[in-house]
């Protein structure tokens, strides 16, 4: 009994020892700054050469953001509209690509590599540079009049979203890299004997997709929606984050206001993710990890 207790103690001790470097780094450079920013969001902050002056203003920063700021709410609404539109496209698109790559074809590894490549492109300065050089639009679309063709043949309610999607196709493709891999991982975990059994029983590929493939990768759809949402929301290139950065060094609004905006934004991400998880985790009747083995 005593021995076991000592062992348990020791394990706890080594446990803390292993996490310690990470915890120090996290507390100093993530947790404390996040707490600090929450604190500052209730203050009016002036950064002067002598240091920072803060005055407590309670909810004023938040009120200002919703009631008086000419840009923030507008920018936020536009961004959320875009996100709601892009998320399903990214998820469906990456599922299609994953299904294609999962077919028994050659050069699988090569294709997988190519579709994972955006992870290198979309981070840091590179993507900014690409934007400024105009590499993110597809020259062929404009040159061969696809846009005009769509405008002429569809009503504007349909042609407009289609055109935006086509124009942003490269961006959408770039944001699908990790999602494709997640779906691939999910598809690999489905037992191939289930497919065989189904096709012996005379199921068409269409039926197999709806009855077997889709239910078994359902958990991965949730993971991908969450991943895509976080990815889009924390992307340094989106308008809202740009606005937050801008306010950070403005004299009349300042850092306090910028952090208030950041916290509103964070709360929205959090609520959206919570809703997604709640909707998708209901009626979880089929668990491929149990049935698939």
């Amino acid at each position: 009994m005593l021995l076991r207790l000592i062992r348990k103690r020791r394990e706890m001790f080594t446990g803390y020892l292993f996490v310690l470097p990470w915890i120090i780094g996290f507390l100093l450079f993530m947790a404390y700054p996040i707490y600090f920013s929450l604190n500052m969001s209730f203050n009016r902050v002036l950064i002067t050469s002598e240091g920072i002056n803060t005055t407590f203003v309670a909810w004023d920063n938040f009120k200002y953001a919703f009631l008086s700021d000419p840009q923030y709410v507008e920018e936020l609404v536009v961004f959320i509209q875009q996100v709601v539109f892009i998320i399903p496209i990214v998820v469906i698109f990456s599922m299609l690509v994953a299904l294609l790559i999962n077919q028994p074809i050659r050069f699988k590894g090569l294709f997988r590599g190519i579709f994972f490549l955006p992870v290198v492109i979309t981070s840091g300065e590179v993507v900014k540079e690409l934007f400024s050089q105009g590499a993110t639009s597809i020259p062929i679309v404009e040159r061969y009049g696809i846009v005009q063709f769509l405008e002429a043949n569809f009503s504007s309610t349909w042609s407009e979203p289609i055109i935006t999607v086509i124009q942003q196709l490269i961006i959408i493709l770039w944001y699908s890299g990790v999602q494709i891999l997640i779906f691939l991982a999910g598809l690999q975990k489905v037992n191939s004997q289930i497919y065989e059994a189904a096709s012996i029983d005379g199921a068409s590929p269409w039926e197999i997709f709806w009855k077997i493939t889709l239910p078994s990768i359902k958990p991965f759809i949730l993971v991908n929606i969450v991943y895509t949402t976080v990815d889009l929301f924390t992307n340094a290139l989106n308008g809202v984050i740009g606005l937050i950065k801008e306010h950070m060094f403005k004299l009349n609004t300042g850092f306090g206001y910028a952090t208030a905006l950041a916290w509103i934004y964070f709360a929205i991400i959090f609520v959206i993710l919570l809703l997604v998880v709640l909707i998708f985790s209901r009626n979880e009747d089929y668990n491929p990890r149990k049935a698939g083995r």
Partner: peptide, 13 residues
Amino acid sequence: ALMFVPAAIAIPR
């Protein structure tokens, strides 16, 4: 921490 806006913690850092 994964979800938090990175720009907002630059100054406290």
